[in-house]
Design a protein around this nucleic acid. Sequence first.
DNA 1: TTGAAAGCGCTAACAT
DNA 2: ATGTTAGCGCTTTCAA
Lengths: 342, 342
Amino acid sequence: MSVTLKDLAKASGVSIGTVSRALNDKNEVSEKTSERIRQLAQELGYVPNRAGRALSSQKSINYIGVTLPSINSPFFDDIKKGINNALREFKDLGFDVVLKEQEGWDSQTQIKMIDELEAVGCKSFIVCAFDCDEIREKLDELNTKGYPTVILNNFIPDCKKLCFVGPDYEKQGRIAACMVDKCKYKQKINLLGVVGSKHHLGHMNRIAGFKSCLESLNHEYEVVDIIEGEDQDIVTQQVVMKTLSEHPEINVVFIATGGGVSGLGAALIADGDQERFAVGCDEIYTTKELVKNNIIDFVVTQGPEIQGYQAVKKIHDYFNKISSAHTDYIVESMIKVKGHFE
Amino acid sequence: MSVTLKDLAKASGVSIGTVSRALNDKNEVSEKTSERIRQLAQELGYVPNRAGRALSSQKSINYIGVTLPSINSPFFDDIKKGINNALREFKDLGFDVVLKEQEGWDSQTQIKMIDELEAVGCKSFIVCAFDCDEIREKLDELNTKGYPTVILNNFIPDCKKLCFVGPDYEKQGRIAACMVDKCKYKQKINLLGVVGSKHHLGHMNRIAGFKSCLESLNHEYEVVDIIEGEDQDIVTQQVVMKTLSEHPEINVVFIATGGGVSGLGAALIADGDQERFAVGCDEIYTTKELVKNNIIDFVVTQGPEIQGYQAVKKIHDYFNKISSAHTDYIVESMIKVKGHFE
DNA sequence: TTGAAAGCGCTAACAT
DNA sequence: ATGTTAGCGCTTTCAA
């Protein structure tokens, strides 16, 4: 069997309790012994036994605080599903989550939610937020307090964190372009890009990836327009219809957001041109239906369920001193076609 | 907290030991009490605590016997990686695996490996084998002895088992066809199908799926030929070259096996026709390279790593009385293009 | 600052 | 057939 606390205690000549305290950063152990024990644990390759730990400390459950902009968002329903899967797996290992949800991404609300979670005793966090100064400050603060924090789904650069779990937006754009390159073999691509907002980094990265891929493939193309649908169906439908009628040369539509897809679908149906190629992002119910009905040709998805699962797992790994806890988890980007949904 | 053995003991008026025995099917408990306790556990929603169980019975490790046709097979390297991932997760929960490998699929060897695993004390099995009578008999025998057995990767119909973990070959064919339909828009498809052997059910199912999808899409097509490459590079190269030269009208090549792909690549390079569309299966190193270099247009993969992981997890779930242990796990089929590998 | 010991849920060896 | 109990690895309270 592996090295246990008892082994360490015997080897270092102190009691089991002291070893446990030394390894768990309680600063009630003298620096000297603490250092010595940590050293020894390192050498002997001590790995804490999850079962023992779980059993012992199960009255003091390890609460993970989660904040999501998930109200009225089918995409986040899948993320939540993943979180629940993880929970089923880690609950009897002493973990539980406290979830706070908001509609939209307002940063003041996000910070308030984090504070509330801290107030109810969460000692680790999973945060899905927009990139802005207040949030970054808050994240640094959590880090300073020693709370491991996973950034979920939306990357936030330059902040202290345990790790990031989410997609590679630029790669998703590249993959979409690869596919279009195959489907529009040797034909010039006249692209209409649709984003929620030009301020949404992820959406714009998808567009950028799309373009860079076409360039590296030497596929002739022109960006006819990049338009904003505000992630709303009606707005998206209107701007798409307007642009399509003004630019009949458009032969590829790439919607780089999961929001407003129904609107795009409606516009494409109204338009009726079979030769127009359409690519979507994120596998939510409406997108699926559009692919099934050949309105959208394919969709690039990012496995939301896995993201939820992995975020929780990262926290679990952290507390069990598994080193990979500190490594980002980038989900696979998948192409899905009609055949996937039947 | 949840219901514990102690709770059940108190509620039923017997000792905690008796409850444990009743719930673990040791037939040293009278049918009457056993039944009563099981009933009670049901009612009160008792779920065994993994931590407690793991801790208690960790000297008597639960060995999982695994047989794979994995020697000299890069595809199975990924399956093994998944098994090891699972192991890392479940090792301190009292599980370990004993792996037996063979080169190829000979059924006598497979049965011998299973017997050896049983002899060294494995109480559960993960088997990857061909469908034949001897194997099916052996699987039924394991089932009769009460050993849970997961069928991995290659489906075996009509045998007793815990569940199947693997891909849906027919769906993979359909997905491949969906893509080709988009890429050969309104063009007639003249298909060359390449399989390892016409006796390999999975390969033929992929071809069948491919055809059925084209039909449901009303895409005009003709199967020029289905040829066997014996999963070997040289054979594959030869038969493909021969067929291509005899049938210049072929514009789509679908290789429904992960074996012999290099050979296909060589044949396509020799052939040099840029208009010919090629689709592969299974993401192994050579296939990846061919996609990167635009020799193969895309590949349909089946997540081997997840299969390995899930197979072990199913066994774990079974012993922890998680009901989903009995449900098949069908992995997602993914399309991968050049953009995935850069 | 440290040691001693109880107890988490469960299994298995031993006792009855 | 059933009860009793030690002990798995760990955290935490209580003493010293």
